[in-house]
Simulated scan of single mutants.
Amino acid sequence: MGWVVSPNVVWVDSPDEIQLYDTTAGEFQTLNATAAAIWRQLVKTGDEDAVVAGLAEEFGAEDDNQRGLIADDTGRFIEQLAAQGLIRAEPSRPDPSAAGT
Protein backbone atom coordinates (compact mmCIF):
# COMPACT_ATOMS: atom_id res chain seq x y z
CA MET A 1 0.00 0.00 0.00
CA GLY A 2 1.19 3.48 -0.83
CA TRP A 3 0.01 6.98 -0.03
CA VAL A 4 -1.24 9.73 -2.32
CA VAL A 5 -2.37 13.29 -1.69
CA SER A 6 -6.16 13.43 -1.54
CA PRO A 7 -7.68 15.08 -4.60
CA ASN A 8 -9.34 17.71 -2.39
CA VAL A 9 -5.95 19.02 -1.16
CA VAL A 10 -4.14 21.93 -2.76
CA TRP A 11 -0.65 22.67 -1.50
CA VAL A 12 2.10 25.23 -1.96
CA ASP A 13 5.74 24.46 -1.23
CA SER A 14 7.99 27.23 0.03
CA PRO A 15 11.54 26.92 1.37
CA ASP A 16 10.68 26.63 5.08
CA GLU A 17 7.13 25.32 5.08
CA ILE A 18 4.27 23.85 3.11
CA GLN A 19 0.81 25.31 3.11
CA LEU A 20 -2.10 22.92 2.63
CA TYR A 21 -5.69 23.77 1.81
CA ASP A 22 -8.40 21.15 2.16
CA THR A 23 -11.05 22.27 -0.34
CA THR A 24 -13.67 19.98 1.21
CA ALA A 25 -13.24 21.15 4.80
CA GLY A 26 -12.30 24.71 3.80
CA GLU A 27 -9.32 24.61 6.16
CA PHE A 28 -5.74 25.80 5.80
CA GLN A 29 -2.79 24.16 7.52
CA THR A 30 0.87 25.10 7.55
CA LEU A 31 3.53 22.41 7.93
CA ASN A 32 6.76 23.40 9.67
CA ALA A 33 10.14 22.53 8.17
CA THR A 34 10.24 19.00 9.62
CA ALA A 35 6.67 18.15 8.64
CA ALA A 36 7.32 19.68 5.21
CA ALA A 37 10.32 17.36 4.74
CA ILE A 38 8.08 14.36 5.48
CA TRP A 39 5.38 15.67 3.12
CA ARG A 40 7.88 16.19 0.28
CA GLN A 41 9.25 12.66 0.66
CA LEU A 42 5.74 11.23 0.88
CA VAL A 43 4.64 13.01 -2.30
CA LYS A 44 7.83 11.90 -4.04
CA THR A 45 7.69 8.21 -3.11
CA GLY A 46 4.26 7.41 -1.67
CA ASP A 47 5.94 4.72 0.42
CA GLU A 48 6.47 5.07 4.18
CA ASP A 49 9.68 3.02 4.23
CA ALA A 50 11.13 5.10 1.39
CA VAL A 51 10.11 8.27 3.23
CA VAL A 52 11.97 7.12 6.35
CA ALA A 53 15.04 6.17 4.31
CA GLY A 54 15.02 9.53 2.54
CA LEU A 55 14.64 11.45 5.80
CA ALA A 56 17.38 9.41 7.49
CA GLU A 57 19.71 10.38 4.67
CA GLU A 58 18.55 14.01 4.55
CA PHE A 59 18.98 14.52 8.29
CA GLY A 60 22.11 12.38 8.64
CA ALA A 61 20.79 9.63 10.91
CA GLU A 62 23.88 7.87 12.19
CA ASP A 63 22.51 4.71 13.79
CA ASP A 64 19.48 2.45 14.11
CA ASN A 65 18.21 4.39 17.14
CA GLN A 66 18.05 7.64 15.17
CA ARG A 67 16.45 5.88 12.20
CA GLY A 68 13.92 4.34 14.60
CA LEU A 69 12.98 7.76 15.95
CA ILE A 70 12.52 9.05 12.42
CA ALA A 71 10.37 6.01 11.58
CA ASP A 72 8.18 6.50 14.68
CA ASP A 73 7.67 10.22 14.06
CA THR A 74 7.00 9.65 10.37
CA GLY A 75 4.46 6.92 11.08
CA ARG A 76 2.57 9.10 13.55
CA PHE A 77 2.56 12.05 11.15
CA ILE A 78 1.30 9.92 8.25
CA GLU A 79 -1.49 8.58 10.49
CA GLN A 80 -2.49 12.17 11.35
CA LEU A 81 -2.50 13.21 7.69
CA ALA A 82 -4.67 10.20 6.81
CA ALA A 83 -7.05 10.83 9.72
CA GLN A 84 -7.51 14.41 8.51
CA GLY A 85 -8.20 13.20 4.98
CA LEU A 86 -5.17 15.00 3.54
CA ILE A 87 -3.70 11.78 2.15
CA ARG A 88 -5.28 8.48 1.30
CA ALA A 89 -4.07 4.93 0.99
CA GLU A 90 -3.58 3.59 -2.48
CA PRO A 91 -3.43 -0.17 -2.87
CA SER A 92 -0.18 -1.49 -4.27
CA ARG A 93 -0.33 -2.30 -7.92
CA PRO A 94 1.02 -5.66 -9.02
CA ASP A 95 4.40 -5.50 -10.71
CA PRO A 96 3.70 -6.27 -14.41
CA SER A 97 7.26 -7.57 -14.85
CA ALA A 98 6.51 -10.28 -12.26
CA ALA A 99 3.66 -11.73 -14.33
CA GLY A 100 4.25 -15.26 -15.44
CA THR A 101 7.17 -15.93 -13.13
Rank of each mutant, 00 (worst) to 15 (best):
W3V: 06
A36H: 12
W3L: 12
R93S: 02
P94W: 00
A99R: 10
E27Y: 05
G100M: 01
G54Y: 03
D95Q: 01
D63F: 01
D72W: 04
E62S: 05
E48G: 10
Y21A: 12
L69Y: 10
E62W: 01
T45E: 06
A33L: 15
D73G: 05
D63K: 06
Q41S: 07
G26Q: 13
V4P: 13
R76D: 05
W3H: 15
V5R: 13
N8V: 14
G26E: 09
A35T: 11
E58D: 05
T23P: 09
G26D: 06
E58T: 14
P91K: 01
L55R: 06
F28M: 15
I78R: 02
S14T: 15
T101A: 07
V5F: 08
Y21M: 15
A37D: 14
L55E: 02
A71R: 02
E48K: 08
Q41K: 15
T30S: 13
V5G: 04
I18G: 13
E62A: 04
V52Y: 07
V10A: 08
V51M: 11
V52G: 08
W3D: 08
G60A: 06
A99T: 03
W3G: 05
I78T: 02
T23R: 12
L42R: 11
Q41M: 12
V12Y: 13
A50K: 12
E58H: 11
P91L: 01
T30I: 14
D64R: 06
V51L: 08
M1H: 07
A99F: 02
T24G: 11
S97E: 06
N32F: 15
A61W: 04
T30V: 11
T45C: 04
T74C: 05
A36M: 13
D63R: 05
N65K: 08
L81D: 04
V9T: 08
E17S: 15
D73K: 08
T74Q: 12
T23A: 13
A98M: 00
V52S: 10
E57Y: 03
G60D: 09
G68V: 03
T24C: 06
A89T: 02
E58F: 02
R88G: 02
T24H: 12
A82W: 04
F59Q: 06
R40Y: 13
T101E: 08
G100T: 00
D22Q: 12
I18H: 13
A53M: 14
V4K: 09
R93G: 00
T45Y: 03
E58N: 10
A35S: 12
W3S: 03
A71W: 05
